[in-house]
Each structure stands twice: as structure tokens, then as C-alpha cells.
Design a protein around this nucleic acid. Sequence first.
DNA 1: CGTGAGGTTGATCGCTTTCAACGGAGGTGG
DNA 2: CCACCTCCGTTGAAAGCGATCAACCTCACG
Lengths: 226, 226
Amino acid sequence: MHISSAVSETKVNTGWVSMGATEWGDRSLQAHEPLFHEGDETSHFFEVLEGVLCAYKIFADGRRQVISFAFPGDLVGFGHGSAYRFDCDALSRARVRCVPKSSILRAIKERPDLGERLLDAAAGEVAHMQELSVLLGRKSAIEKLASFLVSLSERTSPESDGSAQVALPMTRADMADFLGLTVETVSRNMTKLRVMKIIDLPHSATLEVRDMARLRALADCEDNLY
Amino acid sequence: MHISSAVSETKVNTGWVSMGATEWGDRSLQAHEPLFHEGDETSHFFEVLEGVLCAYKIFADGRRQVISFAFPGDLVGFGHGSAYRFDCDALSRARVRCVPKSSILRAIKERPDLGERLLDAAAGEVAHMQELSVLLGRKSAIEKLASFLVSLSERTSPESDGSAQVALPMTRADMADFLGLTVETVSRNMTKLRVMKIIDLPHSATLEVRDMARLRALADCEDNLY
DNA sequence: CGTGAGGTTGATCGCTTTCAACGGAGGTGG
DNA sequence: CCACCTCCGTTGAAAGCGATCAACCTCACG
């Protein structure tokens, strides 16, 4: 468990709220271990400390839509009422800090500035979901993929002169279900980006962005070239 | 302007936060008049008092994704940082209550319970956007349309024994841009639902739900019948 | 009654999906 | 150590759903 003071600390720009308080407890997850299921009572918020989580909705007929990937620093649990409305798994070994909802509500009452920060975090979550809606509704397969890779590299890897190394902790199926595509379409467009010399794939789980400007142009729908 | 006390009142379940305070001022909008544009400084939150608003993102090449329709009682302005990230118009004559952000922040500091309520409202917004993402990513055209009509009827009209009258204040183009479809596809599937005796369209802007159970089944992807 | 925006319907096109086969990486047990 | 198996990723061929292009209709409004 992290050593931390009783004073909470917030980085609103990146959307996370870190709260030090040992009473809240951490939890370790194996790869593919569920954190919660749709329908479970919403007892906690979770802050990812290590690893990557994946929140998704599964239909009765097997269709799946991934709602978000949560990286260290991200907060999971917004948008649910008294019961979780989606499933959430760990993609890899992960550690999360569990924050009881009641504890959050108490903290807000005692420390109004915390409420403001949580509100900012919630606003960031809204912004993310809005961007996802734009992506799902109006972007082509290659634009979706480009957007995803840009967002991933921004969240996890520093860029240097137009290139970046990015780990892909999720499978093609996870990516497909996030982007509203099939694995085949994801794979085909990965290859397309590689042929265009925009990215490279040393391993299937390691991405190298070779031309970030071009990738961004695709992500922003400013490039119709195939 | 509404007559209201200085005490705020919140209905968290329906996602709105009504705050009485005459200093905040209301604003009237003509049909198609913009409330704000992408890039404008985010000075205010807005509570819809009358009419319907439409928030959307426009691409450089003309593609458009509608993010949300806001009905009386809905709050507009979440998910934006220091600048609005989308455009927002009135679909019809509308009236909104303008609440300065600074005023919100001050109110939160003075009244912690208000922060909690706003947080609930934000959570409701997150939930809406998550549902939209599921719809856009994994539902077929007819399922999208059914989901939209169900949601519209739930928000605006009481249901009685499986049927309901619903006004459609937006054009087919607005619906299409919300559902990630084209006007033609929306129109075709409206006809399909009519042929299936699930809905009726006395006028193009008036919907009559004849078989709500069947419509819900489609919306929930439990019905593969065409 | 003319006009234009919004809505519907038909024919065709094409991007993504579906169906199918293959290859490689990792794990297990003989 | 290697055969075997399974999961994951890639690629090809064909099909399908929604998009595109186009014509026509309806209705409100001058």
C-alpha cells in the first residue's frame, strides 16, 4: 500500500483524484479477474494504482461494447447509480485503491474543495465519453484506430520529435469492442497504418508511432489518404 | 422568469439541478439560434427552462455528431474545460437559465450538499454518455432508432398501457446525427417500425408508440425480427 | 400558386462484417 | 526436448448493412 498522508491530492487535468487514507484499503487483481459485475451494488469508487482495467457492457447475444480502459491514476466508478451498470475486469495484474462511496460523501461535506475537484474529475469523464461518442458515431475504421492510438500514446508515453513507443496492454478484441469494430477490421487497419509508415509493430503488443503528425491528422479526420 | 426562492432544489434522479436566484438571469433563444460555439470561453452552465437544445460536434469536412438533446430540466455545460468543446443550438424557441461557473463554485464552497448534488447530476450525464456509446458502437440501425424513441418517450411523455404520444422536436437529420446514421436510414427504419405496427406517425413530427414492449425489446437488442 | 425545406422511397455502391484458413507464441505433458 | 494444443493475430473471399445518389412527395409559407 502506498505511504500517504491524510491530506488528499488531486490532479484534475488528467482526470484523477488521489486520496491518501490507509483505512480505505487496496486490492490486488489477477489478469482477467473481475473487479465488479453489472448489477452489483455500488459500494466503492476505485482508483487504479497499477495495471489496466477495462469496463464494458455485454449484451444478451454476446455483443460487447468497451466503455473505457483505466490506467494508473484513473478513477473508475462514475456514472453508476446504486448498482453498477457495467462489468469491469483487470486486463493484467492490477492494484486498485478502494474508496467507499459513503466515505466520499462524508469527505465532500467536510471539505467543500474536494467536491469541486471531484466535479472536475467527473467533468473529465464526461468529456472522455463525449469524445468516444463522436468517434463511434462518425469516424471511419482507420480514423477510429488512429484516434485510439493517439489517445493511448498521450496517456502512457512521452512523445519525442514525432515518434513514441507505446505498450498495447489489451488484445485486438478489446480494441475492436472499444472502437465498435471487429478484430479483423482492427487488424487490417493496423496493417494499413504500418504500410503507410505511420506506425510500426515490433511485437503485436508493442506499438511504435513513427509519424505522430500524420496519425493525429487521421485521428482528427483531416486526412483522406489511403 | 420563474419565481423562485433563494434556496436551491435538486432532482438528482432525472439529472437536473434547479437553482433559484434571480441574479443569474435567463435567456431566450429563437429557433436555430446558437447558445454557444465550440471554442467560446465556458462562462456558464445552462439549465433548460423551455424548448429543446441540441449539442453537437462538427468536423471540418461537414460530418456532425449530436452529443445530446437537452429538454426542460436538463443541465448543459458538463464536460467542457475552459472552452466549450462543442456547439449548442436551440431546436425551437427556448428559454435557459444561465448560471455563471464562478457562482457554482462559490455555492459549492458555501454549501457542501450542493456539491454532492452536482456530482450526482454529473454522474447522470456520464451514464447518459455511456449509454450513447453502447448504442453507437454496437446497435443496428433499427435498434438505435428504437432506443432513441424509448428514451424520448420516457423523458417527455407518460406511458399508458403500452402506448404513448411523443412529440419529435428535432428533424430526421438531427436524429440521424445523434444515432450515427443518415436521414435516409432513419426514415427507412421509421417506416419499418410503422409497418411492424410498433409505432405510428400521424405527422412526421408526432410519434405514437403502439407497442412499447416490442419497442423496448428492440431497444434492448432482444428481438431480431424484421 | 410558386417555392423551398424536410421527408420518403428506390437503385446502386462500398466499407465493414462474416466466414474461413493459416501462422506464430506460449504452455503443458509425454 | 519436442509434440501438441489453444489463444491470438493476420489475411483472403464473399456477403450484407448502411451510405450514397437520385427522384419524388408533402407541407408550410410567401
